[in-house]
Design a binder for these strands. Structure first.
Lengths: 266, 266
DNA sequence: TATCATTTGTTCGTATGTATC
DNA sequence: CGATACATACGAACAAATGAT
């Protein structure tokens, strides 16, 4: 009947949570990914605890990221398999085709283009003056790697679009084409930074995320000759499904390290 | 007396949490970082709610990462300076010093060295045969960027350590020195992949994470001549505090894209 | 379509333990 | 030592979502 002895010193709900967590993490566990955990009522009976204590134990498992709770259905073991899909973030130069190559993802929905001005973080990244805000095209893409959906936003400052008319004509073109057009200005290089956070509810639905697993976010600024920032991109991908891959080659020391993103003087 | 009306529909504890969260996030807030939140008893009186409801509201704020609770002291507003710290992931080559340069982080604790064998994911990354497992040094470092703690694990296969005696002598050396020694074998390049997940409880404590904010995880394999994998690194950093930065230069197309990490035939 | 049992969500009341000052 | 504040635990009730009847 009893599921293992419960020692006094540490909190009961913690002990129950630990036992369940161990059971879940055991390889050939009775709690396989996707399977249902005992209901709160059943935990009460099984461990001889009250409802609040059972709830606290289950909540602890949620905090550990081991299970998900669903109102009216029950608690279910999350799939802990590490991300399999790869999202290559490197850029190659094809000497034969004389253009930059990036992996293209297939489109899930037609891109949406809007036009707003450049402020805040974005202004800093593009080294634009926020007080004299320049306009920009926003192209929002919803793509898929095959195993996961990713959201991709491409932001083209109006000034750059004016310089490269092909961009103004099709700001929602695939990113490979955008790079090809930008390359007309001169050789390109990219600055990228990666962060992660818990997704917001609307992001969960648009990216088809089941749970509260984190969102990987990459920001990329395309630089042209004279290190001029030309383009901004933001990519949101579910960390549970994909990992970002980079190939790192040593840079020549001479290239002065461009440090912090624009610390504008006041 | 009453701190704002409370509508019925949504959960009371949620409404209280929202009000407090808004108050905390307001710029010139009465709840500055470090200041003390009203105690549970005070919240009960102020909003006319019960103890469990007050607790639930405060717990919600903890989950949002806005406050920290301390037994017997109270709840305190966290410093919310978001992703400020940068963790540069690029490598530079100093022609003058004839060595690779990487940003060094300062040590929080002396590194711990253990010795285990190479299996699973690790074996795949290092292209080792799992059935004839090679041993490896594990060096675990606890470092700080100034604004955040990061955990760094360096894994040196015994074969490589035998080839480069300096590594066997000090497997817990800073990563810059490790690279310097490896460079004796030949020119190096790196393969890196990035994922993120919710931290486990013990990771939360060792990295000093407030709560469920995600963990950024980078895996890096150092390759020597003939693309031979020499070294494996894993870095864990709190996504709320740091972002990883990359500088991307186009690669020559000729470099054949090494795709999936070792699909061993059976 | 409507109803019912199951399961989690929310809320109250109450009591006692333990850390901090 | 005592006051304050958070931690743990019990009991009880009703609400809301879900799935099956």
């Amino acid at each position: 009947m009893s599921e293992g002895l419960i020692r006094r010193p540490t909190a009961i709900y913690m002990q129950v949570a630990d036992q369940l967590a161990t059971a879940i993490k055991r390889p050939d566990s009775e709690y396989a990914p996707g399977s249902k955990l005992p209901s709160e009522t059943e935990l009460m009976a099984r461990y001889g605890i009250s409802r609040p204590t059972a709830r606290a134990a289950v909540d602890e498992l949620v905090n550990m990221g081991l299970i998900e709770k669903h109102h009216g259905r029950g608690s279910f073991v999350r799939d802990q398999t590490p991300p399999s899909g790869e999202l290559p973030r490197s850029v190659t130069w094809s000497a034969k085709e004389k253009r930059y190559l990036v992996p293209e993802l297939s489109q899930v929905e037609p891109p949406v283009v809007t036009r707003t001005n450049i402020v805040g973080e974005l202004a800093a990244a593009l080294e634009r003056d926020e007080d004299d805000a320049e306009d920009a095209f926003h192209a929002d893409h919803l793509l898929t790697t095959g195993s996961a959906r990713v959201a991709h936003r491409v932001i083209i400052p109006i000034g750059v679009a004016a310089e490269v008319p092909a961009l103004a004509a099709a700001p929602d073109a695939p990113i490979g084409e955008i790079y090809a057009h930008l390359a007309e200005i001169g050789p390109l290089w990219w600055d990228e930074w990666v962060s992660a956070r818990t997704p917001l509810p609307d992001e969960r639905s648009s990216l088809g995320l089941a749970d509260a697993s984190p969102l990987l976010i990459t920001h990329r600024v395309t630089h042209g000759p004279d290190d001029r920032p030309l383009l901004y991109e933001e990519l949101h991908a579910p960390a549970a499904r994909v990992r970002l891959t980079y190939q790192i080659r040593p840079e020549r020391k001479t290239t002065k390290p461009r440090t912090s993103r624009s610390s504008r003087a006041v």
